[in-house]
Design a protein around this nucleic acid. Structure first.
Lengths: 248, 248
DNA sequence: CGGGCGTTTGAAGGATGTCAATGATAGTGG
DNA sequence: CCACTATCATTGACATCCTTCAAACGCCCG
């Protein structure tokens, strides 16, 4: 929202070697990356990169959640993707951003200067390969999201969304309770954002969530925290697509 | 549909140098590609790559249209993308496909052996860079599609779809008629496929198309061919997002 | 305590899905 | 050439789902 609030900038280096994305890189590549890396911290609501900007950096998330979104000229907002810890954000090799990238929560980012990174890519095949694979994974995720949005009923889209959340260890944890395991998922955004994300309205989201609860498929601990009580039931709700939950 | 019908395979080389995707490559790279390229032809309805397959090849389309789709276990189909001439299909560096790729029309494909291509990529930075940029473009297209599917009304999604088609020279042509220019777009798939693509049903597509025609925004020449009579009106229908039509 | 924010609930109208029937077109075989 | 069939597009009727507007509720914070 607030383009004017500048992020806090520290010269402290990131611990890139700990990021899963970079772990497979040879040491020299990591060192080269580290040299052009700066940490930026944002508060919830701040804009990281604005639509049609030519940002000077790209990077990955150390902590927090970013929201990629497009605001249509008529005022409606569509969330295109949520980025969580260890995800890369921004776009190398592209001048203009096609989306707003905003901090959905307070966030700490490892940022690389765009030009320096592109130089590095051209000289370091291992690094370029890493970025290629990373973009391929993002493409998979985007296509999975397309399938989700292709579901006609909101209840189906919500079920599919929860299944995708279940797959992310950062947002889901197994909870041992009484008789059997539960999966606890944390939804990092509010109802209105979730509605934009799923192509509907906050009221409809609310009704769909409570419908799942009424059927005993989930339990609502608080508006942002659910327990999955009936995983097969949830999968059935999503059109039996398990969204990779049983993927080896 | 029919996995069993084998494609026609010729050893004739592709004219890769004419493909816009490859045009910027140095001559050596194109020659190397040409050496591992084989032409395959498919008839409408044949499966090129099946979901969960480990296809031995990837490539680009010389002629025809491919349909990327996912069939959910409950039988519903979602089209994730349409691939037209000069688009790349399949996925380098990934073993399993996540989607069915079927020929929507008769198609002629320039195919590269997967392993040979991956070897080539590792040895040819220019080629790897080309693939990286190509995947980045696909990612942009996928995100644009996510925005389209985020529209709540079918009429909005249809309008956005037509705007995207307008941008493709292969599917749109300017037609001089009487007083002013028209843009003629050719929809290369039937109503049922279009419905799967836009997350709705064939009947609803039909009604939405005729609603646009009744308002004088488009003219229906035949079920697959429309003239855009009122481009601003169409843009307004799509939530005022012009989907890059006015992009420099 | 009171105000703001986000969530939830209710009611009514509009949009879409579904089922069924009809119309249009191209290809087939006589 | 024509009847026949298969396929696709269109239309209608009705049930369901969703949006919209409005109001109530809960919660955090000043």
């Amino acid at each position: 929202m607030n383009h004017l609030n500048k992020p806090t900038l520290t010269s402290k280096e990131c611990d890139l070697a700990r990021e899963p994305v970079f772990r497979k890189l040879p040491k020299e590549s990591i060192d080269a990356l580290r040299r052009i890396c700066r940490v930026r911290t944002y508060r919830a609501g701040q804009t990281v990169i604005a639509d049609q900007d030519e940002p000077g950096f790209t990077g990955c998330i150390a902590e927090g959640i970013l929201r990629m979104q497009k605001t249509l000229p008529d005022g409606r907002q569509h969330i295109v993707g949520l980025l969580v810890a260890h995800d890369m954000f921004g776009r190398v090799l592209h001048r203009r951003s096609n989306f707003d990238i905003e901090a959905a929560t307070d966030a700490r980012l490892c940022c690389f200067d765009r030009r320096a990174l592109e130089d590095l890519l051209s000289r370091d095949p291992a690094l370029e390969r890493l970025f290629l694979v990373n973009v391929l994974d993002e493409l998979d995720a985007a296509r999975e999201w397309i399938i989700l949005l292709g579901c006609r009923r909101v209840s189906e889209r919500l079920a599919a969304f929860l299944l995708i959340l279940c797959r992310r260890s950062a947002d889901a944890e197994r909870v041992v309770s009484g008789s059997n395991d539960r999966i606890r998922v944390h939804v990092p955004i509010g109802r209105a954002d979730l509605a934009n994300y799923l192509g509907t309205r906050a009221e409809t989201i609310s009704r769909a969530v409570h419908a799942l609860a009424d059927e005993g498929i989930i339990a609502i601990l608080d508006p942002h925290t659910f327990d999955i009580l009936d995983l097969p039931g949830l999968i059935a709700r999503a059109g039996n697509g398990d969204f990779g939950l049983n993927r080896p």
